[in-house]
Design a protein around this nucleic acid. Structure first.
Lengths: 188, 188
DNA sequence: CTGATATTAGTACCAAGTGCTAAAATGGTG
DNA sequence: CACCATTTTAGCACTTGGTACTAATATCAG
């Protein structure tokens, strides 16, 4: 019924990783040991107390929030923009962008970078993607820096239609090509 | 130098919104009033104590983390799957999926749902998108529930190529159509 | 000047700890 | 079995950042 010290400490780490919001008293109950034992364990493993754990989760969140806000605007970082003509953005491929299995970037991240850049280059209040035709030329991997370049090919003001080509490269090699048909409307 | 009660309370709200990690003592110092005054203010404005504030930020974060994890696998929720034949997924459009300006879903989220469903329906270790041709038929808005259905159209084992059609609907109306050319490989 | 409103002070108490000392239980080894 | 080390418990004083409550002052407006 009871675990060895080592096993208990391993489980303790696991448990707190899953849910850091547990008091020593609660932990003591779940492991059937005294509160003091839990405290000794925490000391040995240098696990901070409940309040500090919560604080660090909260602090982490606060940072993330700042980080995730711009993501809602454009995926990647715009490094050059000439409205209604062309724009360039940069996206560093990280662990969260790839398949765990093979480290290859998931297509929708490259699409998101290209598509949001196409939206950004349009100098109007409303820009929606109508159609797009895309090709994933070459797999992109973790650590790759993807440079996407959007170029406005044509602009039909009658039909409120703009055609934009986006070409994404990694170290000067094309990895993605897409053509986006965008609907646009000025709200003035 | 000193603010009126109203003004101080307004600033208090603002301050804590920007940074919830401040003790009453600290607040008292910054507003040049006593700790008790701050506590009365918090009561009147029903602002919880420091520890509770931190906890709620942390809890929020934790939820988000759990939410964003499955996102790495499939965007949306798979509700039916018949490997190598068809699959259906569901995505509820929330505030974070849309343009703040007009409440219309950003294209890449619909693409991500469709593309990740296309990957999921393939019964192989490796599935990568080669090409795709997509049409955003009708704008999707906040609160919409998008049902995506992926159907395997053809499967060329020689060329390791699979063609999948994904059709997404909101209340039985088509909002998105995409054709995905997938590269597949069994790693056995 | 007086009454209401706002502010400050002070006390008892709580949760979830730290830090420390000391006793008891358990476990392996000769 | 006895002995010593490791492990586990217990207990107490003290800390932070509060709540809950009472009571005394300030401050201002009519």
């Amino acid at each position: 019924m009871k675990y060895t010290k080592k096993e208990r400490q391993r489980l303790l780490l696991e448990t707190l990783d899953k849910n850091p919001f547990i008091t020593d008293e609660n932990l003591a109950a779940t492991f059937h040991v005294s509160v003091q034992t839990i405290r000794l364990d925490r000391m040995e493993l240098s696990i901070p107390e409940l309040r500090e754990r919560i604080k660090s989760v909260a602090a982490h969140n606060f940072e993330e929030e700042v980080k995730s806000l711009p993501i809602d605007e454009v995926i990647g970082e715009i490094i050059d923009i000439d409205l209604d003509k062309q724009a360039i953005s940069l996206l560093d491929i990280k662990q969260e962008h790839v398949f765990a299995r093979n480290g290859i970037a998931r297509g929708h991240h490259l699409f998101a970078q290209a598509n949001s850049l196409a939206v950004a280059v349009i100098n109007d209040e409303l820009a929606l993607t109508r159609k797009s035709n895309i090709t994933f030329v070459k797999p992109v991997k973790v650590g790759d820096r993807v440079i996407a370049k959007a170029v406005v090919l044509s602009n039909d003001t009658e039909k409120k239609n703009t055609v934009i080509q986006v070409m994404s490269k990694v170290e000067n090699e094309t990895v993605f090509v897409g053509e986006f048909n965008m609907f646009r409307e000025t709200m003035k």
